[in-house]
Amino acid sequence: MQIIGQIQGWIILGLGLLALATEAYALIHAVRQRPDAFTAAGKKSKTFWVAALALATLLGFAVLGSGLGLLAIIGIVVAGVYLADVRPAIDTVMGRGR
């Protein structure tokens, strides 16, 4: 039974690392964009998204390895909203859209 607990621990750590990488990717993308692209796309300001994603990345790092608790879920949801909604809109405004 101890081996099952160890496998579960590795899976949780892997998921936490994946979430942290996603949050960091979203943060880096937001930092590299022009501030006017956010308003042109009809989204919240660059300052808002950089702050929200920095907090999400910090939460992801803070709970790394301790399980996927509420803080980790909040962080990945913020990054997911950015990557699924804001990033495509900004890419379209910047001429990189599909």
Rank of each mutant, 00 (worst) to 15 (best):
A37R: 11
L17T: 13
Y25F: 13
T39H: 10
T22K: 01
Q33G: 02
D36Y: 12
E23G: 11
G16E: 03
Q33A: 00
D36I: 14
A37N: 14
L13Y: 09
L15D: 13
T22N: 07
A37Q: 10
A40W: 06
L27C: 13
L27K: 05
L18A: 08
L17A: 14
Q33W: 00
E23F: 00
T39Y: 10
F38P: 05
G42I: 02
L27F: 14
A26V: 05
A40Y: 08
Y25G: 06
T39L: 10
A40L: 15
A24T: 12
R34Q: 14
L17M: 13
G16D: 02
L13V: 02
A26I: 02
A37G: 10
L18F: 04
A24Y: 04
L15I: 12
A21F: 03
A26T: 09
R32S: 15
P35H: 04
V31Y: 04
A30C: 01
V31A: 03
A41C: 08
Q33T: 01
L18Y: 06
A37E: 13
A37I: 11
L13I: 04
R32W: 08
L17N: 11
L13A: 09
I12H: 08
A19V: 14
H29P: 05
Y25K: 07
V31D: 04
L17C: 14
A37C: 12
F38Y: 09
T22I: 03
A21L: 01
T39N: 11
L20V: 09
Q33I: 01
A21H: 03
D36A: 12
A30M: 00
I12Q: 12
A26F: 06
A30G: 02
H29S: 12
A19F: 11
A26D: 02
H29K: 14
R34P: 14
G14S: 04
A40G: 13
A41T: 10
L15E: 10
R32Q: 15
L20N: 02
A24R: 00
Q33L: 01
I12M: 06
H29V: 08
Y25M: 03
L18S: 04
P35A: 10
I28F: 05
F38L: 04
I28A: 12
L15N: 12
L15P: 12
I12D: 13
L13C: 02
L27Q: 08
R34E: 14
